[in-house]
């Protein structure tokens, strides 16, 4: 049975997730990447408690479309900002690639998870997005902060709240 989660997340929602599990995410995601993080630092323009951040920026939407193609960007570029946001109650992040040791420590301390979605499947991922609203920094164009409503958005737990890391575990399991 694939697990399902929906924000706002509690400690126990997060503690139930294990690295390597598939998780379907519904409800609200906040989309923000480099330029937005640089602006809001540890003070995001929304209440971050229990919420999920999605590191991404879409291609331009075609007329009438909810959003363009949208997929994860490299999460590691946000590492410097992340521990402070975790201290403020951020519970989950969605991106691609590895995270720093500081981020993993802050995740363990604050009970948070890091989820990944494949890069390069942005047309597919856009189908799970039912609504997209710019909530801050429209001047940043594709990097504006958007609130997304998603249904059963397919993710994989990459790093769980105990610090188990699928990139290490997976490599160990399949290297010959």
């Amino acid at each position: 049975m694939t697990k399902k989660i929906e924000a706002p997340l509690t400690d126990s929602d997060v503690e139930a997730l294990r690295a390597g599990e598939s998780v379907l995410v519904s409800g609200k995601l906040y989309m923000a990447r480099d330029a937005a993080h640089k602006k809001f630092k540890d003070n995001p323009p929304f209440d971050i408690k229990g919420q999920i951040l999605f590191y991404a920026s879409p291609t331009p939407s075609k007329p009438g479309a909810i959003i363009g193609s949208v997929g994860p960007t490299t999460a590691g570029r946000m590492d410097a900002f992340t521990p402070a946001l975790l201290d403020k109650g951020l519970k989950a992040m969605i991106g691609k690639g590895e995270r720093s040791a500081e981020v993993v420590e802050a995740m363990k301390k604050n009970k948070a998870v890091y989820l990944v979605v494949p890069g390069g499947v942005a047309a597919l991922l856009s189908k799970y997005i039912k609504q997209a609203t710019v909530i801050a920094y429209p001047e940043l164009g594709p990097e504006a902060v958007q609130a997304l409503e998603v249904v059963d958005f397919p993710t994989i737990v990459a790093i769980d709240s105990e610090g188990n890391d699928i990139f290490e575990i997976g490599k160990k399991n399949y290297s010959r």
Binding site: S57, G68, S69, G120, V121, A122, L124
Partner: peptide
């Protein structure tokens, strides 16, 4: 997922990746 994405992208003329 990558294969499915390619099908959707081609059919709907949506970018494969952002």
């Amino acid at each position: 997922q990558i294969i499915k994405n390619a099908e959707i992208a081609k059919k709907e003329k949506m970018p494969l990746c952002q």
